[in-house]
């Protein structure tokens, strides 16, 4: 279990203009684990998550300091290839937004961008990715129909398959199930647990039960700070910090 962390971050600060949204975050992520980032709205957890594949870059008046490394490489270095970074660190959002094409074309989108044209390679990637995203049996006979015809839960799994197709090392998920019903959410949680042997998974969630059920580590954010990072089992049975206890037992937030 003492594998070297795949992502490290040290003293990460982020300012929106004068507002300091992140106040010095030190946080590492281990391979083959699911880390849940929890905390009240405005605590900085989504802002932090988006830093990990530089999704905040285009926000005006933003200032980021500190050190974030993927495989020990500074991802904010001037020579960092952002396309390559986002290939390594995939992202899944709250609202599943498939592109308005077929399921097949959605999944291979990233591969085609990378110039892959070999039909056999693409076919294989579609099957592998949809299977890994636990949506293959529902879609294998309708691969060439529009992804927009799918249900919300299926769309989200197709969006996850789209991320998996480019073989990232890390998957970021920003409240991936908050727009879904409990059954679809449960399928996605199970899928994440099945996927973690091959990926590093970092998930922002407002659903504390989801963090408890699905994650290995829980990181609790409050007011731009990381209050506690702990093994999930410890976090939900005996957290180290009083603020953590108060938050998860519903005393505030």
């Amino acid at each position: 279990m003492a594998a070297a962390p795949i992502i490290t971050s040290r003293d990460v600060h982020l300012y929106y203009g004068k507002h300091e949204a992140l106040k010095g975050i030190d946080l590492d992520f281990n391979p083959q684990q699911i880390t849940a980032l929890i905390g009240p709205s405005g605590s900085g957890k989504s802002t932090y998550l988006r830093l990990l594949n530089r999704m905040n870059d285009l926000i005006p008046n933003i200032k980021i300091t500190g050190d974030i490394r993927l495989y020990q490489q500074d991802i904010y270095a001037s020579d960092m290839d952002i396309v390559q970074l986002r290939k390594e660190v995939g992202m899944v959002f709250q609202q599943p937004h498939p592109f308005p094409f077929s399921i097949y074309d959605n999944v291979v989108y990233g591969l085609r961008l990378a110039g892959i044209k070999d039909r056999a390679v693409l076919d294989q990637a579609v099957e592998t990715s949809l299977k890994a995203a636990a949506v293959w049996t529902e879609t294998k006979d309708i691969l060439h129909e529009s992804a927009l015809a799918l249900s919300g839960g299926q769309r989200q799994r197709v969006c996850i398959a789209r991320v998996l197709a480019v073989k990232p090392a890390v998957i970021l998920l920003d409240e991936p199930t908050s727009a879904l019903d409990p059954i679809s959410s449960s399928k996605i949680e199970q899928m994440l647990v099945d996927l973690k042997k091959d990926y590093t998974i970092i998930m922002v969630t407002h659903n504390l039960q989801q963090a408890a059920r699905a994650s290995d580590k829980t990181a609790f954010f409050l007011d731009g700070q990381l209050v506690e990072l702990n093994d999930t089992v410890n976090f939900f049975t005996a957290p180290a910090k009083k603020e953590s206890e108060d938050y998860i037992s519903g005393r505030f937030g």
Partner: peptide, 9 residues
């Protein structure tokens, strides 16, 4: 049992 109650609710 304690862990299952806390984590799986």
């Amino acid at each position: 049992s304690f862990e299952i109650i806390a984590l799986q609710q």
